[in-house]
Design a protein around this nucleic acid. Structure first.
Lengths: 200, 200
DNA sequence: GTCTACTGACCGAATGTTCGGTAAACACAA
DNA sequence: TTGTGTTTACCGAACATTCGGTCAGTAGAC
């Protein structure tokens, strides 16, 4: 605690650590897909040999597990937040959409990876189950907004849930932070389109 | 033309053919991901041995190429259709959204596969390039609708393009035909939400 | 000398693909 | 009806390569 080094994560010796290996790995996973990425690919991207990776992390699947947890932890914190419980149904829905966009942007590579998981291993299945819990949470919010009469009655709440969050999750497919749009810019555009409507 | 056999595609002998192998393969590709699917997996799903697959199709990558073409051909036919050229900008945009949903639903497994392509091989890169051409076509439509003043001026047309078609493409992630919703049901809900707005 | 952060050689398993072979179905002549 | 030759649709084994992962050794900072 009273350590003289203010940055305990970074060792004195230059080189890699579990965190930087994870960050690079997630980048490559998103480029090539998890199954399409070999440890050889990772080693090349990290500038080291395959075996050196195993000094920092236990293996390929743990790399995936850590990345998925990072995305899911963000979403679960959001679910537990006060903002998701205060106000009318539609206010809470709007807040959750906005925060979901923020988490997606803040943790872009991790959430991107999560959204591509198919359930090919116990690790992926566990992540999928946690993700479905979040989806059910959204579904409940939309239903409440519909029940209170805040959203148009001529659309199925279940469809709205999927389509609305389809637009949200699509962000991970095309968003490039370098182009200048912030998380709030994205959320504003998305909410204007889906809540207010495109038509003038 | 004057052939005595009315069904030239189907031979007298029962068993598999390139078409049924492709259909099954695309199903497995979508379950496990292309890279996560082995020829052994395909063989199991087809009820034959790995080597028998090669009697019907040249290889794994050609299976992918054929599937991607099937999806892209649909999208390109849509671009060339009269409906995409008649009416005001926003009318054409609405028509294209509706038809895109229809193609997505009609060719669900093929389009799903296309939407997951990452560019890991020349086959995938070629498909990605064709897909980007379709995306640019949509972008032009949205811009025209914005220029003619049919959509709200306080949102960036480029963002609208991505978000609107993000909602469309998300359909492949969650749509289950067995649940009863038709392509038109989906398009109706999507257009009500994005063009009219959810808020009452 | 000790610890950290690696390298290089290597392992068994799995990968996509090819090969030689074969049983059943077929077309057709005798 | 039977015999002959050909095609169809497959199997089992083997191929070279790549996979994720292990381990003994070691260069350099302390």
């Amino acid at each position: 605690m009273a350590s003289p080094t203010p940055t305990p994560a970074r060792q004195r010796r230059r080189g890699h650590d579990p965190e930087s290996v994870l960050a690079t790995a997630v980048g490559v996973f998103n480029e090539r897909g998890y199954d399409g990425t070999s440890m050889e690919d990772l080693a090349r991207a990290l500038g080291m040999t395959k075996s050196a990776i195993y000094y920092h992390v236990p293996g390929k699947e743990q790399l995936l597990a850590r990345a998925l947890d990072r995305a899911l932890d963000g979403l679960f914190e959001l679910m537990a937040d006060d903002g998701a419980a205060k106000g009318t149904g539609i206010e809470r829905l709007e807040w959750v959409v906005r925060q979901s966009v923020r988490i997606l942007v803040d943790r872009l590579p991790y959430v991107t990876l999560l959204l591509r998981v198919r359930g090919n291993s116990p690790t992926e299945l566990a992540a999928l189950e946690r993700r479905r819990e979040f989806d059910r949470f959204i579904g409940r919010l939309v239903t409440e907004a519909a029940v209170e009469g805040s959203i148009r009655p001529d659309v199925d709440p279940a469809l709205v849930t999927r389509l609305l969050f389809g637009a949200v999750t699509s962000i991970s497919d095309w968003y490039q932070p370098a182009r200048g749009a912030s998380a709030d810019d994205l959320a504003d555009a998305l909410l204007k389109m889906t809540f207010g409507g495109l038509r003038v």
